[in-house]
Design a protein around this nucleic acid. Sequence first.
DNA 1: TCACGTAT
Length: 785
Amino acid sequence: MTQEAPGTPPNGLAMASSRPEHLTEDKPDGSTLVGVVQRITFRNDANGYTVARLAVDGETGAVWPSDGSLPGGSLFGPAVVTIVGRFPSLAVGERLRVWGRWVDHPQFGRQLEVSDYAVVAPATVEGIRRYLGSGLIPGIGPVLAERLVAHFGVETLHVIAETPERLLEVPGIGPQRAEAIAEGLRRHQGIQQVMVFLQGHGISPAYAARIYRIYGDDTIRRVRENPYRLAMDIPGIGFKTADGIARSLGVAHDAPERLVAGLHHMLQEAAERGHVYVSRRELVERAGEALGVAAEALAVPLGRLVGQGEDVAPPKAVAPPLAVAEGERIYLSSLFRAETGLARALLRLTEGWGLLRELDDGARWQAAVAEAEQAAGITLSPQQRQAVLDALRHGVLVITGGPGTGKTTILRVLLTCLERAGMRVQLASPTGRAAQRMREATGRPARTVHRLLEFGHVEGEGFRFQRNEDRPLAADAVIVDEASMLDLPLAHQLARAIAPGTRLILVGDVDQLPPVGPGYPLRDIIASGVVPVARLTHIFRQAEQSLIVSNAHRILRGEDLVLNRPGGDFFFIECDDPEQVAETVRELNAERLPKYLECDPIEDVQVLSPMRRTPTGSERLNQLLQAALNPPRGDGPDPSGGLVPFRAGDKVMQTRNNYEKAVFNGDIGRVVGIDPETGSVWVKYPQPDGPQVVEYTAGETDELTLAYCITVHKSQGSEYPAVILPLTTQHYMMLQRNLLYTAVTRARRLVVIVGSRRALRLALKGIREEERASGLAERLRGGAA
DNA sequence: TCACGTAT
């Protein structure tokens, strides 16, 4: 005999309210049952799909199959039925009310397909014991559950929820334990309720859990209030998901919050493509199309997005507007702040230095440079010497030039000069690997810009940069290499952390690939004409007649390339079929190039692909090249039994910075050993002071990928004797001048492009190239912020 | 599912 708690039980455990509220108590077309979960037969944690056995209560208004047949059980005992459906979390012992439809499964017989369910308070001692002991409630296991139930009986749940202090009556439970138990139960019930609600609107359990972690018990209220907040607050949920939830909640197609969120989403999408702002007209047109509303309907929402027109909806809280309108340009607020802040900081850094230049005829520094050259055993060209002098005499300087123009040489002399003058210098770069190269080139410590600015977790504030105008970097000069990789937000963080009086020197090649994030500050700073720029054009490294060098310049100008000159260093093999391209790449790498250059096919040849996927992408080519260049030895089974995805001898690349191992994203090495027992892998990396062998445990090998072929993006900042570049029209999206330029300039001795003429032409024309919208150059010229 | 960086 069971008694279902009448109405809403005193402890609030009956969870009728946990059901999506749009559902009525009984569905006319289905069945409803109440029972205790006996056993979980099957469960898929990824989507919550569960098959369980439910021991059905006697008189709870159960609706049985209309043909009168009893599903399972007997006429006399409690019926045990199979229920099937999606349950975000379910524990043995839980008491459920389920709604659903009877189906006859060919293999498993009659079962209830559950469309909705609610957790009901377990009302029997046994039910409560099983529920609490299920392990689903943090802090309570079977033993403790037993003790609690033995003491409080059917009142147990009521006691925990309402008068947790009474838990102290149970021997062995102290105040802390009592608190933990109450909290555990409350939390579990909260999660249950939220899970059911979110599930009802088509959100996967994984996301539901994430949402609950952030919104807590406030979840249902907040999601109902404005589902579009999810897109902003929950990582991984974008506008599209939020829009789906909104639709399910019945939010109108032209509801103001939908349109505001849609506009915001368009701005974010533009930022992902590198744009700092979007013109009002383009924003409204594109958003109108995407949202399926007339452009005119967006005028008011746009006003609300930029913080105007509070009359539309009274502000609920004093939240800063998401966007800023400046004339016809609409910015995301964060990017507007970054752009104006960067301009202001740079202008402030350049101020006051003019006076120094006038007072100082430069003689003092000229002498210092000459001394430094001597000390370093380097003779600079006049162009290079001028760059060093400019760096010493200006607040901000850009040094830009392509590969081989001597940026590293300048860096060394400049550093010597500054240090001899007793100045403190800080070296940094946007990537860990570039910082590592800087360390090697200068013999001085160099860090990522993030580490320089002490990016890290601050209690109660999340992640942020801890160096800023209030706590600037202690240095007389900050030198940043590979500055083309700085995006607008990072450049802003950097500039604001530099005190007036500290020199900022940005070194980079502005023709390489644009940064990952929005904006292209190095390009804009140069274009503004406000900051002195030292342009290095003279190429020392490669012979004048090198086609690699001259073709690199042709690429930048969009001109046709000079190809296949006998004895030359720049070849094009025409090939239209992607499969044939892949085969040609393999043959070149494995056979022809090693012979032609008398070099090692793995160490000295690097295949670069514009993409990862496609038949000529890095993933496929890696498989092909691994088989060709490092075939399995012997024909026995893989000695590691498939535990290790690599073979001894494989060329591999580290894919994220690992300071503990001192290996950085983009480092390439060779597998020198594998332990088939433990799955450990040893990789040898070349280092200036001799190769280093690094151990990876089985769990760490996911930091590595095969590197016979890598993407052009990953190759940025590296050089190789020979480069092979597959180029097909399947790479359409990626065919840009910067990409071709970057790929080609990675090669010291030889470049071979394999692909279609059309693809090459597309890349030269930069057909897909989109100028990044940015107002930084104008702002710098305007002199104001 | 274009590609790419940083941080715990």
